[in-house]
Design a protein around this nucleic acid. Structure first.
Length: 272
DNA sequence: CGCCAGGCCTGCACGC
DNA sequence: TGCGTGCAGGCCTGGC
């Protein structure tokens, strides 16, 4: 599920429910995520109050005052809001139980997700410290994209998916943004000029913004019944549309493999 | 059975 | 020698 728009949609859904709420306890059913869930986590969280929820790339940061609960949803993670009477299902690895009865539950079948703790400034955590600029920040623009791609001969699509280049762009939105910018995914990154880097930066932001506006892609009822189902997948221009006509020009969408990931593009709209 | 899936880290080989 | 870069592999389960 989760790239930046899905994580941001989750953040926006959870924040009003959790801010100023006090944690009664945390339940760890399975510590074996991509990294082990810290043993001390329940002790650190019990009694803490959520001051806010932030996002950095695809990481969710729950501000607990003295420290931060860091969650990453990996490939298959979802956060659900349930109540304490809801029985956990097989892949429900982690619960945050609040004193008002709210339970935030992490379900992650593939267990590529993360549940971590960072004392003090969460951005000092080694996994977050070296991430590239947020796509909606001032630091991310065409000039940055141009500068950082000068010595990269790899395909632009793979460079966009490097979290050190820009935070939060994964396979879907790399494909979609390149379509909107009219750039061929296999193009060497260092062969894209400043003007087109500027266009690409704009299109990355635009694509992410549209997706956030649609509630992300295929996230469904993750906060229960308050209707925040994502439907951006119905607006995909290229992703998962191999062989189907381009929505702009009718040419069949093409699929290739880049770095063991699927890439989709329109050979007519994305020529350069 | 094999392959694929929205992520991302590590280790290794390579070229400057 | 050291660095940046670019692959492949690995972590897992589930669905087709």
């Amino acid at each position: 599920m989760p790239e930046l728009p899905e994580v941001e949609t989750t953040r926006r859904g959870l924040e009003p429910l959790l801010v100023n709420q006090r944690i009664r306890t945390a339940i760890v059913r399975n510590r074996a995520l991509r990294l082990p869930v810290p043993r001390t986590l329940p002790r650190l969280l019990a009694g803490a109050t959520i001051a806010g929820i932030a996002r950095r790339g695809k990481y969710l940061l729950f501000d607990c005052g003295a420290g931060t609960l860091i969650l990453h949803l990996g490939m298959s993670g979802r956060l659900w809001v349930v109540n304490s009477a809801t029985p956990p299902e097989p892949h429900d690895h982690f619960d945050l139980v609040f004193e008002n009865g709210t339970v935030v539950r992490l379900r992650d079948p593939r267990r590529f997700g993360l549940v971590l703790w960072q004392k003090g400034d969460p951005l000092r955590h080694p996994l977050l410290a070296n991430i590239g600029p947020e796509p909606f920040s001032e630091a991310f623009d065409g000039a940055w994209l141009h500068r950082i791609t000068r010595n990269r001969s790899a395909a632009i699509k793979q460079v966009l998916m490097d979290s050190h280049v820009v935070a939060g762009v994964g396979n879907i939105y790399a494909n979609e943004a390149l379509f909107r910018a009219g750039i061929r995914p296999a193009r060497a990154a260092n062969r894209i000029g400043l003007k087109r880097c500027e266009l690409l930066a704009v299109k990355i932001r635009e694509t992410l913004e549209l997706a956030i506006g649609a509630g992300g892609s295929s996230l469904r009822d993750y906060v229960g019944s308050d209707g925040l189902a994502g439907n951006f997948q119905s607006q995909f221009m290229v992703y998962d549309r191999a062989g189907q006509p381009c929505r702009r020009c009718g040419t069949p969408i093409r699929e290739i493999r880049q770095g063991q990931r699927s890439t989709f593009y329109c050979p007519s709209c994305q020529r350069r």
